[in-house]
Simulated assay, not measured.
Amino acid sequence: MSQLRIEKIQELMKQEISQIILQELKDPRIGFVTVTQVEVTRDLSIAKVFVSIMGNDKQIEDTWNGLNSSLGFIRREVGHRIRLRVTPELKFVLDKSLDYSDHIQKLLLQIEKEQEQG
């Protein structure tokens, strides 16, 4: 399968999964979730869905459990919205890149503040 088609499918899946999580899921455990990326295997059998979850540790854990319990529903909805022969098996992966960039930003501000004082 061409790389361009896979990239289009990945972007379409990212948009659709974001919409499903935002509008369709009624699970009260699910808090603020952002789908940052989707990676699909070349044979379209597995899709890794990278999600960033905001909140404290308890909220993150609750949201993570809520998302994983909704995998079947999300996969079925993706199958209805995107016409593929086989809907990929979804696997959520926690994306820590936003937390990491926030941490780096705080460190840079702290260094800047120390340089101004010293």
Results as ranks from 00 to 15, higher is better:
29 R>C: 03
88 P>D: 08
33 V>R: 08
80 H>N: 15
64 W>K: 14
75 R>Y: 00
19 Q>K: 13
61 E>S: 13
81 R>A: 08
38 V>P: 04
69 S>G: 00
25 L>P: 04
15 Q>T: 12
33 V>A: 08
69 S>Y: 07
63 T>R: 10
42 R>W: 03
67 L>Y: 03
47 A>D: 04
72 G>E: 03
34 T>C: 00
36 T>Y: 08
23 Q>K: 15
62 D>I: 00
16 E>K: 15
47 A>L: 06
26 K>A: 06
27 D>L: 06
73 F>S: 05
87 T>Y: 06
62 D>R: 10
87 T>I: 09
31 G>I: 06
38 V>W: 06
32 F>M: 15
80 H>R: 14
67 L>Q: 05
43 D>R: 05
39 E>W: 02
25 L>V: 13
76 R>S: 14
69 S>I: 04
24 E>R: 09
67 L>N: 07
65 N>H: 12
76 R>Q: 12
24 E>Y: 00
25 L>W: 05
18 S>W: 04
60 I>N: 02
73 F>G: 00
71 L>Y: 01
22 L>R: 14
30 I>F: 04
41 T>I: 06
40 V>Q: 01
41 T>N: 08
28 P>D: 04
69 S>M: 12
78 V>T: 09
81 R>N: 13
36 T>C: 10
87 T>H: 07
39 E>V: 11
73 F>M: 12
22 L>N: 12
35 V>Y: 07
70 S>E: 14
39 E>H: 10
83 R>E: 13
26 K>V: 02
88 P>R: 12
19 Q>Y: 10
64 W>P: 05
59 Q>E: 15
33 V>C: 08
40 V>E: 02
52 S>G: 02
84 L>R: 07
44 L>R: 08
14 K>Y: 01
32 F>G: 00
34 T>D: 09
38 V>N: 07
79 G>W: 07
15 Q>P: 00
46 I>Q: 11
56 N>R: 09
77 E>S: 12
24 E>C: 01
78 V>R: 03
57 D>F: 01
55 G>S: 10
13 M>G: 12
78 V>A: 11
13 M>R: 02
79 G>L: 09
37 Q>R: 15
81 R>M: 09
65 N>W: 06
42 R>N: 12
84 L>Y: 10
49 V>R: 07
24 E>I: 02
65 N>A: 14
23 Q>S: 12
40 V>L: 15
41 T>V: 09
20 I>N: 03
80 H>T: 08
58 K>D: 15
76 R>H: 13
66 G>Q: 09
33 V>P: 01
74 I>H: 06
13 M>D: 05
